[in-house]
């Protein structure tokens, strides 16, 4: 079976500074992987490199979706190939209406798949239904993208986009940061609803508590730009007890 996402000995630098120093990960269909690691270990950098953001030099290795290298693809091409990144810091877009943004994203995906663009009315219904489950009200939907949203609202809006785009590969970068207990539950439920045999997820987090809600199949510890240790969900509990220092030593 071909992996949905395969990261092979990935090395990446910003300027002359190496940040990712040989990452190997294989995400098969149906699996949820968690990446944990201290601040500055390279988690966000890895998510950006996977999504194809400019400004990183790939100095070695490869990233494959369904067995094909995507390093030459632009961010929009990777997204249309099924990848989605929920940002640690979602970006405000003053003047860009939320609904037209969501529709542009959904239609881009549809056109790629050779489907009809979704019509306005059907789209509004679709968004309302999914927004309701994430406790996102009409007022938020009408505003410019992420403008005037609280930290928690921004995270829920990321999950709404994910729900609408139905990606096969989802990367969630610290989606739990800045969420209170209730919001954490809403977001986790939203994510869990998207778990499916034909999809995979990479859940990046600094804390173990998210993983009580989104229970991973595999847990990896990233430190200093490398995966130091991999295991089952019990590894997350171990980190909770001993901290990253202990794990790092063990590596």
């Amino acid at each position: 079976m071909t992996a949905l996402l395969e990261i092979r000995d990935l090395h990446a630098s910003v300027g002359d500074t190496p940040i990712l120093k040989g990452i190997n990960l294989t995400l098969n269909a149906g699996e949820v992987h968690a990446i944990m690691g201290p601040n500055g270990s390279g988690k966000s950098t890895m998510s950006y490199v996977l999504a194809g953001r400019n400004g990183y030099e790939i100095t070695g290795g490869d990233v494959l979706i369904n067995g094909e290298s995507v390093l030459e693809l632009s961010p929009d091409e990777r997204a249309r190939a099924g990848m989605f990144l929920a940002f640690q810091y979602p970006v405000e877009l003053p003047g860009v209406g939320g609904m037209s943004f969501l529709r542009a994203a959904v239609n881009a995906r549809r056109v790629e798949a050779g489907e009809e663009e979704v019509d306005q009315l059907a789209f509004v219904k679709m968004v309302r239904a999914k927004a309701g489950e994430l406790d996102i009200n009409d007022d938020m939907l009408k505003r410019a993208v992420n403008v005037g949203f609280s930290g928690g609202e921004k995270k829920r809006y990321e999950i709404l986009q994910m729900a609408l785009l139905e990606p096969t590969i989802s990367i969630l970068d610290e989606t739990d940061s800045g969420l209170d207990v209730d919001a954490l539950k809403i977001v986790s439920d939203g994510v869990n609803m998207l778990r499916a045999p034909e999809r995979t997820m990479l859940v990046i987090t600094h804390y173990q508590r998210l993983l009580n809600h989104i229970v991973p199949d595999h847990v990896h510890i990233l430190a200093g730009g490398k995966i130091r240790k991999s295991g089952g969900k019990e590894l997350a509990l171990q980190v909770e007890e001993t901290g990253y220092a202990g794990i790092d030593d063990a590596a």
Partner: peptide
């Protein structure tokens, strides 16, 4: 803004359209 452009394209929106959306937003705002 490169970050705004990346956010839009990371959602699958083609770059040319993403650029136009940001320019339009700059004016409509």
């Amino acid at each position: 803004d490169a970050t705004q452009l990346f956010y839009l394209t990371s959602r699958g929106i083609p770059e040319a359209k993403a650029r136009a959306m940001l320019i339009e937003a700059f004016l409509i705002d």
